[in-house]
Structure formats: structure tokens, C-alpha cells
Design a protein around this nucleic acid. Sequence first.
DNA 1: TTGTATGCGTTATCAT
DNA 2: ATGATAACGCATACAA
Lengths: 365, 365
Amino acid sequence: MDNDNQISIETVYSLKDIAQLSGVSVATLSRYFNGQKVRRSTEEKIKEIVDKTGYTPSIAARFMRGRSTGVIGLIVPDISHPFFSMIAEGVMNEARDNGRLVLCGSSSGSREVEKRVIRQFSQSILDGLIYIPVGEAEDIPAIETFRNLPLVVAVRLNIFKNVPHVYHDGEKGGYLATKYLIQLGRTRIGFVASFWSPPCTNEELLEYTNAHLAGTFSSIHRFKGYLKALEEAGIPYDPKLVAVTTYSHQAGVDAATALIGRFTNCNGIIAMTQIVANGCVSRFKSQGYKVPEDLSVIIFDSNKQKADYAYTNVELSLVEMGQIAVRTLDNLIKGKKANDICIDVTLQVRETTSFLHPRENDETI
Amino acid sequence: MDNDNQISIETVYSLKDIAQLSGVSVATLSRYFNGQKVRRSTEEKIKEIVDKTGYTPSIAARFMRGRSTGVIGLIVPDISHPFFSMIAEGVMNEARDNGRLVLCGSSSGSREVEKRVIRQFSQSILDGLIYIPVGEAEDIPAIETFRNLPLVVAVRLNIFKNVPHVYHDGEKGGYLATKYLIQLGRTRIGFVASFWSPPCTNEELLEYTNAHLAGTFSSIHRFKGYLKALEEAGIPYDPKLVAVTTYSHQAGVDAATALIGRFTNCNGIIAMTQIVANGCVSRFKSQGYKVPEDLSVIIFDSNKQKADYAYTNVELSLVEMGQIAVRTLDNLIKGKKANDICIDVTLQVRETTSFLHPRENDETI
DNA sequence: TTGTATGCGTTATCAT
DNA sequence: ATGATAACGCATACAA
């Protein structure tokens, strides 16, 4: 309100405008905005006008000249799923703090949609891309699809050669969970493996572990840890204790139904997500099981969002994964070499696990 | 593998390249790609080359010429929160199906961060912006901040004049929930109002309803419906039955503690989210309350992600809200006028509500 | 219907 | 250290 310049905050200014207003050439201005040194007095003049106008460079024009735009892409299978939205939070936070913007697309859980998103993205203005593939082994896009875009794969492994992958140590997670249940005196441990679209039956899971594309599934990695812990403890593997299912609440119910129907005397459960575990537990409860006494449960999850049960879980640090993915991509964009990053996991003991107190008659549950 | 052109799929092509390869001028090409009519034979030639090269227009150059980029912005308070990530899913789906891209930023629940995001966004290449403000009444950004960008506000009301808002009918939701609990014979209905940062105490809530910025809070709207239903039923309002708190699990626990501590003989609860309700319920349960018999609970939520309790809830259709926001923004971008859209809500009766069976001695709980 | 020429905001080259 | 100018890929006014 103090003085009424003819400079309006509504307008969008170009370098040329600023040059005119400040009496400094566009070339010098460009250099200034790109961090090069200018004379002290020049800087003063520029700063004044920039303050008045609120000028900021056009990222479109910048990109047209072949420079970086500060925009990175993020493709997730389903942004409404907390697992991915927490990673996205990490990506966006880290990106923002580095002055980057995030172009985000959700594949809605479908490879078909994912392809469309990738196509849209690769013709876009991105400096680089963080790609979380839909969890199906078939029909993975070819690396050429990404057209020389600096690329980081998150969550999943072994998707592309020579592309950095950021993932959790699933095998260690499966191992820790299983070992802990064994330490609690539980030897009938159910493993509920979740897939977006299950590639095999419970009978086939052990063999499928060695299949060509098996390395891309988180359930498989965790399953390997499960096997390792069993072997270490001298407990024979029983495929009846495996349920192969998907990622929904109903999937958990179905898995529990299967485990109960096979008379496995299951006294421990390892599930991939909280939603699935909720389904499992509700089914077991309706059969009279008590958690954690009769059935101890461990999940893989980030415990940020507290649920009804405080699940004992393998902590997955999802926000952190997003941040790491951005940093890795940054390195790639700057031309540095970037390697795969395996994020460590820890077991958080909460309320869904306890020592096994054997009943008089295990058969009659 | 059939014939070996000198056209490589790796290269990025410009209009000029396509002009050279097809023998059509850049102007005609430009017109063609913008949907104008060209001669049949010309179209054939263009199509052939486009197929071979995989050419797509540079959105940066397009934007520089003042045309639309197909990019819209989405600012959410916290993408890791399921409430917002489900809206984001709707936004991204609808945007994708319209050939648009979504630049997405998370404010991490802080007005300060939100300001930075807005600043980044408004100097960006957006055709328009969907803005979900952080839930604090203070320090709302000025409309000028958005620099003539077509703008749609989602979730919240009364943020800007002459800007379309897309929101749920919170008052109806509060009314439906309260009325239903009353129909179940419950007259001591606790209202757990959640805020990102509570602007008043439970004693002050009734008065705060008329405050300047109160219209921006979803809790307030729902509270109005609560009051209306009470009045209709001739039940006097009791501020002791109100708990003003935040959005976490712990907030729910605290709210329950307050309600219990005030000896309110609460037999119904209306909570804003599932997380909060979970906290509430766990606290009441530890005091011996049974859900739904002793305490019936209704929440506001989208029931997509099934929890342990199948909560009776006011269904919020969040994905749909995202879609509607995009369509509204589309209209705005096309120069059409767009009005506020109030999305209808319905009550979904599930397992956390039942008729009240009075105890012998209500005092001794 | 099609082509030519100009300008959008920026960076890079070259000269000063 | 700074300024003038060409070039980036596209859209459009204008000419053909």
C-alpha cells in the first residue's frame, strides 16, 4: 500500500522484462539465476527487481534449451494403498527439499494402465523417473520403453540390468520373523504369501522360488528367509502351512480358511501386510483362536498408521525408502554411478506375539 | 527386424524432423496434432512417420507458446494419509483417462511447507491446480498466490471467493449419524471432533461454530448436523459429550479418556476417522465397554480399506471426489464456469452399532 | 488446404 | 564481468 509501482504481482515476468526493469542484460541475468558470479552492484539491482516482481524462471523454456526441469516422475501401482502412498510421501518430501517437483502417476494395479502411464511419462519433461512396477512377473516393460530417462526402480528387485533398485532386505525380514516365532516355542508357522496375481499354488511355492522371474516378488524373498530360519532350527518345511493369496482383507480371510481347513495346527502366522493379517486374524478368531496366545502374528509393514492391533512387525521404513530413491535418482541425473540399495529391516515386537502355552489337547481347536 | 530404416526409436524427434521425413510442413503438422483437418493423403503420410518415429509433441515447447501442457497440479496436506491418497487416486485416474499428467505435492501437514509447495507449483507449467489446504484456519494463503491459475479447492469449504469447492455434505453426514444413534435408543452421544490443530476447547465448540473461519472445518459441519439431529429429537446439547482433539490414534485414546473422565455415560460415539475411532474404542474397551452394545460407534470414512471392525460409517466416496475435482478443473480450464459441488453422503450400517439394551445400573460403569 | 516467417523464455557462444 | 545474438520446438498470423 506504500508506493504504487507499475509492477503488478499478477503478471508473469520473463527474463527480458527483468532485463528491461533492472538495466541488466538477459545473458547476465541467466548466469545469475544459474549460480554464476556477478558483480556486487549488479546483484543488488537484480535482487531488487526480483523481489518486486516475484520473478521465477520458466521451467518450460529451461527444458526447451535442454537443461534440467527439476521435475522427476513417480509411477506407483496404486497411490491409494498406504504402502505406496508412504513411499510417495518420502519421495515428495525429499524432492521438495531439493527444489524438485514430482509428476506422479498411479497404475491402478494394472499392467495395462501402467503401460499407458509410462508412455505418457516418457514423452514428458522429466529429469528422471522412480518406477515401482505393478507386482506381476509377466509382461514387464522393456528398458527401452524409458527412452534414456535416468531411472530408479523401487520396492522390487531384478527388474532391469544396470538400473539401480532400492528395496528392503526381505530375506532378512522373513528370517527374523520366523526365527522369533520359533524362539517363542512355535513350530507350526503359517506363511501367507501375497501376490497381485498369484503365479503358483502353495504346493508349488518352494519350487517357484527358483523360477526365472521369482526374484521380483517380495513374498518370495521373505519366503526364502522363512525357509532359512526353519532349516536352521531343524524344522521340516511343510507346504500345507503356506497360503498363496493376494493383498486384500478377503485374501487374508481365505488364507486363514485354507490353513484351518488343512488341519495344520497353525500357531504362528507371517503375513505380508496389515490388511491381509486383519483378514487372517478375524477368521482365526471366529474359530476360537486367541491372539497372541493361540496364534502369534507378525506382519511386514510400517507402523506409522496405528491399527487395532499393535502388530509385531518387520519395520519397513517406507518414507525413508522414498527419500533414498530420490537421492539415488539425483546421483544418476548428475551422471554419477548408482548401485542397488538394500535397506535394512528390524523386528519390532509388539502385542501380537507371545510364548506358546501348549493346550491340553491341541487337536480340538 | 524386417527393414532397417535410419529411424531410431531412441531419438527424440521434433516437428522439424517429422516435416523432413514426411515432406509435410511444420505448420500443417502442428495443425494436424492439434486436431485440425488435413487432406486425407497428408494424414496418411504423417501417420506413417509418426508410427515409425514414435513422435510426440514436446509439452515444454507447447507451454512456451502459451498452449496447454496437459499437466495439472495436486496439493494435498499429506499423501501418506489414506484419506488424501484415495482422493489422489481418483485425481490420477481421471487425469490419466483425459490424457493429463498430475504434478503432486504433499504439504506434510504444515502450512509452512504448503506455502513452499504452492510457490514451486505456481511457477510451474500447470494448466490448473487442485488444492486441498492444510486443515488450519489461520494463515490461509491469499488467492493472489495462485497467479491466475485455474483453481479448484477440494475437501474444504469457504476458502476462496469465486473458486469452486468440491466437498462432502458434512452436515448431512453428522445429521444422519446422530439421528441413527438416536433411533437406536442412544441419547448420550459423544462427538469426537478432530482438527489438525484444535482451535478451541470442547466447551467453546458450540460458540466457535459461528467464528469467522469455522466454515473451513469438516468437523464443524458435521457438528452442525449433530446439533440439528439432537434438537429435532429434543435432546439437550451437552458440551461434556464433546471431545476436541486431533487425527491420530492417540487422539482417539485421549478423547475417550476425557469422555470417560467426565462421567458422561456415553453410549454412542461419532468420530471423524477410523484411526481416531480405533483409539477411542480401545480405550473404552479397556474400561469394560462392549462395542456395539455398550458403545455404538459411527465414523466418517471410505470403507475401501477394510479394518478389523466393520464400522458403521458415513460413506465418503473419496476416489469419486478426486474424479469430480478433475472434471471441475477441466471445465474451468476450458473457460466454462464452475460452481461448488457438494457430494452427497449415505449412512452405511455395519457392525459397530446396535440397539441400546439398558443395564440395571448405568452409574457403575 | 498448405507453407513461410516470427516469436515465446531460456541458455550458450562469442565478442567486448 | 557483461552484452548481443542464435538456437531450442512449437503455434499462429499471414501469404499462397
